[in-house]
Nucleic acid binder design. Structure first.
Length: 306
RNA sequence: GCCGAGGUAGCUCAGUGGUAGAGCGCGGCCCUGAAAAGGCCGGCGUGGUCAGUUCAAUUCUGACCCUCGGCA
């Protein structure tokens, strides 16, 4: 049986995934699934650089604009929603395009996430408190006893992962390393094609800086004020743009300082995304300095007909 | 012109008579329910220039150049 093809457009923030994907979707009769933790939120329009109303009219977008600011979101929540959407889109005789920059979200969808219980907030709080009073190292030592394999892979300062590993054991009685590998992703039922958009670092950074200025001009400060009033969730409040502007609103530094911070942190993000994606050799890279968007799209369209 | 302070890593600066460090930046990397999060690793640089003292000077002395304050 011929497997249906699912196309992924991934890449660092600022390369132009959105515009590219919209253009591609038009040619392929596609619908876009956003693999983006921040575009999911209502009201976070400017900071998450959502597709424009025009773009959303031209191509149907899924998983954009459906969460309230105080909702949590996660990779698991994402695949829970994205997985069934793929089938639905194919049944409509359309082509699913997954677009986003989060390495984990993409990997989770393609390769799957092992079935595991949700977070236990009380347990996490308890361990965080413990870490503060007696040190992160102590928790790492505890992990070593119940799961030597996981503890050797998790750095002793990486509190977040140490707690998660302990949490899995606490909730299931099985160490986290025993859960890994027991995963099923969409790659098992579809023909997955990963296209990575890229451009030389200086060019990307220039675009990022320009975009930050445009976000400020478009009213980022007002947007942050609005979001703050609505008590953002942990996920929402970790958005780039939010914390940088918050510091300005709290008079900890000037607007110019916030602007520079936003630029710097966005570049850091791009760098981290690049580092994540580089490790995945299934990705076919498209350098937008070497090949025009138009030609790249044509190439993908041709490949899809084969 | 005079007085004072200073010129050390891309930036801000610390320090030492035996040729140098820290933060930030920058680069590299890890990543399984917060991922736009979290974590790890990476520092030879004409020590402003030239001369002197010394076994040895970035560190002491002198001259010069430059920067910043103050006075004219």
């Amino acid at each position: 049986m011929k497997r249906e093809r699912v196309i992924f457009i991934i890449g660092p923030t600022g390369v132009g995934k959105t515009a590219f994907a919209v253009e591609l979707a038009k040619r392929l009769k596609g619908e876009i699934i956003s693999a983006d933790s921040m575009q999911a939120y209502r009201f976070m329009d400017i900071m998450s650089q959502k597709p424009t109303p025009g773009e959303r009219k031209a191509v149907l977008h899924h998983l954009v604009d459906f969460l309230d600011i105080d909702d949590e979101y996660s990779a698991a929540e994402f695949i829970k929603r994205a997985d069934p959407l793929i089938d639905k889109i194919i049944k409509k005789n359309k082509r699913p395009l997954v677009v986003g920059g989060s390495g984990l979200y993409i990997k989770a969808l393609v390769d799957g996430l092992f079935p595991a219980p949700e977070k236990d907030t009380a347990f996490r709080k308890r361990l965080q408190k413990e870490a503060r009073s007696s040190g992160t190292k102590k928790l790492h030592d505890r992990l070593k006893i119940i799961d030597p394999e996981a503890s050797s892979k998790i750095h002793h300062n990486d509190l977040r992962r140490i707690i998660r590993a302990l949490e899995i054991f606490h909730l299931t009685g099985t160490p986290i390393s025993a859960h890994k590998g027991m995963t099923k992703g969409i790659k098992d039922s579809y023909a997955v094609r990963l296209y990575g958009l890229i451009m030389p670092r200086p060019m990307l950074y220039e675009r990022i800086e320009k975009r930050a200025d445009e976000m400020l001009e478009a009213g980022l400060v007002e947007e942050v004020k609005l979001i703050r009033r609505r008590d953002p969730s942990m996920t929402a409040s970790s958005s780039l743009g939010y914390k940088e502007i918050l510091g300005y609103l709290d008079k900890r530094y000037s607007l110019d300082c916030a602007r520079e911070l936003l630029k710097k942190n966005t570049k850091h993000l791009a760098k981290k995304q690049l580092s994540w994606f580089k490790a995945d050799n299934r990705i076919r890279w498209i350098d937008l300095k070497e090949i025009s968007q138009e030609n790249a799209i044509r190439l993908i369209v041709t490949e899809c007909k084969v």
